[in-house]
Design a protein around this nucleic acid. Structure first.
Lengths: 244, 244, 244, 244
DNA sequence: GTGGTCTAGACCACA
DNA sequence: GTGGTCTAGACCACT
């Protein structure tokens, strides 16, 4: 039963400044691997257009990201906003992740719920076009896993995560559910830190469950798709929990 | 695959004014039946304290609610903010709900995902205290269903919905998942209109599935709890879809 | 040409508290002789109803009037709000009036404008009923002038002023002009002090010009009515100016 | 004779919120043509200073004006509060004016009274400086009337009305009467709609009576000045009445 | 003691 | 440097 303190269900509101939202958007995009280390972000002007805010506001967010060491601003013709290689000691990361342990567990519970539901619904609702997209993304992931690693381990993982995110979102889209899709994007961004901390190099098996999930979706086996997805996420959870 | 337009995952930010958040909080509390028609909301000053905003901001939200006809403002010592009986023709409601049909379906998909996950987790994690709370709420619901109806049908339903909301949130709390709890609160508020439109009087069976879900939670049968909850919500969905 | 300071015609606004308006209304009614010394005002409750404000607000105004010595509050069955005899030395009054000399002149200019216009229009537009009313009021005034003076001089004058005000307002009403009527009421109240100060007893001729004005109105002689009214007011002005 | 209902001269008080006064001030300034379509009002902060109120209060008034479509709000460095071109069909205007026909007549009666009184007094009291000002304004009006019309008819008229208002107020100032001046400003604002509706383009003769009035003032012919002014206003009245 | 109004000042987002 | 938003506190009018 609700405690008397919130007996009316009224909780303090959190004011969100526009610049925070902008900051979050860009940081999230980087976290999700949309921009890999060394990549150039769109110009300030383009970012402002995309986000429907003024350049001033974008600049403020950029300033913060620069301060965080996430991006580097280079001037001149060859310049722009360059995503930096994130260099953090694993010990630092572990400390950081541990501090948010409860939140992490909460997020995992939520991920299992939404991602397996999305997979189950996708099995019911996917079109042939959806399936092609999913297969394509699985293939892309395989090629990333198997590629010659010329990059640092971190970048390799980042590249994988980018495609991985696309796949999970594509599943939610095949499920025709915008709320689930939004939830997936949001939680993946929230998980970036622990995932980046734990997976410093790709296991050859990283993509196996993906294939099985997509197969289940192909076969329209709703229960199986949901179950496999839950397994997949719980596997990640287990790996991280062990590491902690 | 994501369209090129959002190829970077950067979407326009939605600036959220504090007053909108306040408005949403209060409207949600009313939608969930935390305040029944005829009830008095906390005073403006108390709301401001609860929500950690200034009275001015609260008043702006109050003004909107007044404009919507949701509350009535009475001045003087014995005055206050009174929740109004919402009087809309069923035809109007049907039109309104139909206009948001896609959104409604999306919400139901999402509800099935989060509520059944919450029930399943609750079966694993509930304490004895949680169970007592859940049983208590089920009993409360039963008594509401069985009571002599001296109220209007709408008020009777509203009273039921309030206790119903409390039960569902209590399940999420038993699952020790704040994200799921928040999702449940949010979606229930979003469903306020269609539910209010369809259920104009309580069926004697309205509470049966609740009992079964709580029994499954009591027996720590995770799968069953999740399954029954999904059934429960899908039953509501079916009723509404049929009505449309 | 407007000075640069108010080049936009925007001047500071004066905030008017409700209690001031209530105070003004009651004070004005007394100034105009609507309530004579010794009269009882309506009860607080009735005043509140008449003025469309709460009793609290009326009480505040009453308090001020009591403080000014304008009314006396008597408790009990025979009690009520009693208008007091105003006792001021003539020297005090002269000082008071002199302090507002400019304003007084301004008001006279304005009175000449509106009252003679009202008289002129009344000559054009009066009905037979209007005329009867006007004649009645002139007769009333005559009877007051001629009556045995049992009262103090001040009360006698006050009684006269009351009827006098009614006549002037009746003329504006015969002119079918609410703006002019309102202006007349307002200015007469503003003139109360100087007039009360100067006319301590009634001249036998006090009513003569009234008769002539009403005659002109009866004959529908617009110009004459306006001219006589201007004369009438300018006579008062001259008397006061001489006294100052 | 006054009805018993107001037998004590006590009428309901009208509570005036500061924001209403502010609204009125700004709307009046625009009505009088102090700000022409396309002009920028002073900034919110400046208006607050001028009107001796807080910016919040100004903003409330601004919001109403925006809602009325009277001004347009532009953000940013080059933004501000811009007076909009009022576009209403003449049929709409006619309907609007007709609805207030009684009030319009009342206002005209009052205008004749105060404006001709002001002109008459100005003839007696004007200084040489006043005369120069008056002549200047008449010349300005002439130049407006004769100018090549590159503007829309409405703007041309608005420009004329602005100077016209200045002239009439200047006459009241020459009369050394603040009450008359205030009355003139107020009534001119009240006539904004009908005048704007009727005079869609300037007649070449629009300024002729002005010249004659000022000549009469110059010659210190009080009666003539008042008479001509009355004629001038009655001419306008006749034009409008005919149009209705 | 409730809602209604106003203030003075601050910071934000925009162009 | 503009409008947009929020705050904290005060006083007022109502019942």
């Amino acid at each position: 039963m609700p405690s008397t303190a919130i007996s009316f269900g009224l909780e303090p509101v959190r004011v969100v400044a526009t610049r925070e939202l902008v900051l979050e958007q860009i940081q999230t995009a980087i976290n999700l691997g949309r921009f890999l280390p060394g990549d150039r972000l769109p110009t300030e002007r383009d970012l402002a257009d995309m986000l429907h805010v003024s350049r001033t506001t974008v600049r403020e967010a950029i300033g913060v990201l620069q301060g965080r060491g996430v991006i580097e601003v280079r001037r001149g013709r060859t310049g722009g906003l360059i995503v930096r290689e994130v260099l953090r000691t694993r010990a630092d990361l572990k400390k950081l992740v541990r501090a948010n342990r409860d939140q992490l567990r909460d997020t995992f519970d939520y991920r299992v719920a939404v991602e397996s539901a999305a997979a189950a619904l996708a099995a019911e609702r996917r079109t042939r076009g959806d399936l092609a997209t999913l297969r394509g993304l699985v293939a892309l992931l395989s090629s990333i896993v198997e590629q010659e690693v010329e990059l640092t381990g971190a970048s390799h993982v980042a590249q994988f995560l980018n495609a991985d995110s696309q796949l999970h979102v594509a599943i939610a889209k095949s499920a025709r559910s915008s709320r689930l899709a939004a939830a997936i994007v949001e939680t993946r961004s929230a998980m970036f830190l622990p995932v980046g901390a734990v997976f410093t190099k790709l296991e050859p098996t990283a993509n196996h469950l993906h294939e099985q999930v997509v197969d289940a979706i192909a076969m329209r086996d709703s229960n199986l798709a949901g179950q496999l997805m839950a397994e997949h996420i719980n596997a990640t959870r287990a790996t991280i929990e062990k590491w902690l």
